[in-house]
Amino acid sequence: MTSAQILWFLLIGVLFSGFFFLEGFDFGIGMAVRFFGRNAAERDTIIQTIGPHWDGNEVWLITAGGAMFASFPMWYASLFSGYYIVLFLILVALIFRGVSFEFRANMKTETWRHFWEWASSIGSFCAAFLFGMMFTSMIEGVPMDAKGNIFGSFTTYVNWFSLVGGVAVSLMCLIHGLNFLQLKTSGTLRDRAQSWNKILYPVLIVGEVLFVVLLYISTDFFAKKPVATWSILIVLVLLTLIAWWGVLKAHNWTAFISSGLSLISIVVLIFNGLFPRVMIATNSAHSILIKDASSSPYTLHIMTIVAFSILPIVLVYFIWSYWVFYKRLKSPKAA
């Protein structure tokens, strides 16, 4: 393993962290559109909180995918072809939710507005759920041949652990979204988001405990890296508790950052457990290792230069665009 390979493994982790932190809350907002908002005006406001941002947030996923292709083509090829149907469903979900915001705003009849609200809620939920399912089933180990082709059965993708993983991630996104909503709105919406999260946090804690138990049973994380795995899990639970406290005390900013960081800690957990592998095979001889999966040193070198010269600029205007819209939105009139 070269240092460039490790750097890129970390960078892929950073990109997925960015994706889950940012798209995490807009998945949550997307889910909330239909059943959290009680009338058209409220839903307008809910969507408006992510209006200027959701598109840029999704670019984190595209960048993560592209970077994975560029730096670890063997990983990209195995994962994407092996999770064909799961990724296909994710794409369909992303399409529905992606167009729903613009389309809904321009619908004339209530029925069609409701259709796109459902598209947003179901699409956002499915995308978050399926990403959670994909990454949890991935770390269980999948049946792979020596070339890295995954020949999975239904239970490879759908089993108790991956279902819990899917539910946990979508719940975390919903909570994160509601924390974002508390940050961006005032009045009824903000109060309701707070009271929802007061109930959702205990549920999440139960889910996290269940997740840890199944993680212990289904993966080799504890056997291979007990200290690191336990540390990350403790951090995860602590962050959850801090966020819960933030919700109870209406410290919106604390709650939001903590719920975002707890999503990131899931990414860290996965990447820590994977290392030094990128794909875990049920037959461990077929697992794909970082050292075998990467592009040539030359390509990695080029990509490192490119990433470190462009990413800082991107971050400057990306953060600035959030700064432009930092104010709370006006409360919906009808509420």
Binding site: G66, A70, M303
Partner: peptide, 12 residues
């Protein structure tokens, strides 16, 4: 992968 991924990542 060695060639095709790079422009895709840079595009993003």
């Amino acid at each position: 992968g060695d060639i095709f991924g790079a422009p895709l990542a840079i595009e993003a």
